[in-house]
Design a protein around this nucleic acid. Structure first.
Length: 232
DNA sequence: GCGACAG
DNA sequence: ATCTTGTCGC
């Protein structure tokens, strides 16, 4: 049997070896449906007190970016946070949330790296391979790689390199904000990944599907259109 | 040996 | 990730 997901790796070293093996399954050629109708945003939050990780998935209409459905799943934390091994901590909860959606998304947008990772197997790549869905990594900070100076304007972008290899792009999604680190996760190429992230932006730093998932995963209140003012 | 290090 | 006051800007 293969409890690759039911049981977490017994050590960081074992986790790295598993990543190296699974990374061989990553495909960076486009296999996106001719018509992408839905995009799901995924993010996780930590409940320190209960040692639990909460995964959130928000299914959005690919054109309007309006949310169609949401799902949340909680699991006990079974793996520590180790740079480069984030997926072993968050993946179980994220997969459970993904499975709880009423339908399978055409594309996944995940908070974390895609292949912009030491072993080319960040959270988004891992999620894409396991769920067998096209996926994109959108990280709020850099894990590895180097890049040229980035312009200050919204939309400015430079490639992210590890040596000669382009492992993603650094994108100024919004003026005055720190950039996003966008990288392909699975079943699409870097330019297509960048393209979709841009298409999912809605004037905020984070692409809409991830921004919505982020609000669900952390226990912050969501600013509803008519958010009632809290009592003071 | 010394930094760097997704969330 | 999470904590947490003050501050800047529309």
């Amino acid at each position: 049997m293969k409890p690759s997901l039911a049981t977490p790796p017994s050590s960081p070293a074992a986790a790295r070896e598993l990543q190296t093996r699974l990374a061989m399954r990553v495909r960076l050629e486009n296999t996106l449906p001719a018509d992408v109708r839905t995009v799901a945003g995924l993010d996780a939050g930590i409940d320190r007190r209960h040692r639990r990780v909460r995964g959130a998935a928000v299914l959005c209409d690919a054109r309007s970016l309006e949310p169609l459905a949401v799902a949340v799943a909680e699991r006990p934390i079974e793996f520590p946070y180790v740079p480069g091994l984030l997926s072993f901590r968050e993946l179980p909860a994220l997969l459970e949330a993904l499975d709880a959606l009423p339908q399978r998304p055409d594309l996944l947008l995940c908070d974390g790296q895609g292949v912009a990772h030491p072993r080319r197997f960040g959270l988004a790549a891992h999620l894409g391979v396991v769920a067998e869905l096209p996926s994109i990594g959108v990280a709020k900070s850099r894990l590895c790689g180097s890049h040229a100076a980035l312009g200050p304007g919204a939309g400015d972008c430079v490639p992210l390199y590890d040596g000669e290899e382009c492992i993603g792009h650094v994108l100024r999604s919004r003026a005055g904000c720190r950039p996003l680190y966008v990288s392909a996760g699975h079943r699409l190429d870097q330019i297509t990944a960048l393209d979709w992230v841009r298409r999912c932006l809605k004037g905020r730093r984070l692409p809409e599907p991830i921004r919505l998932a982020d609000r669900l995963a952390s226990r912050r209140r969501g600013a509803s259109p008519a958010a009632p003012a809290r009592r003071r």
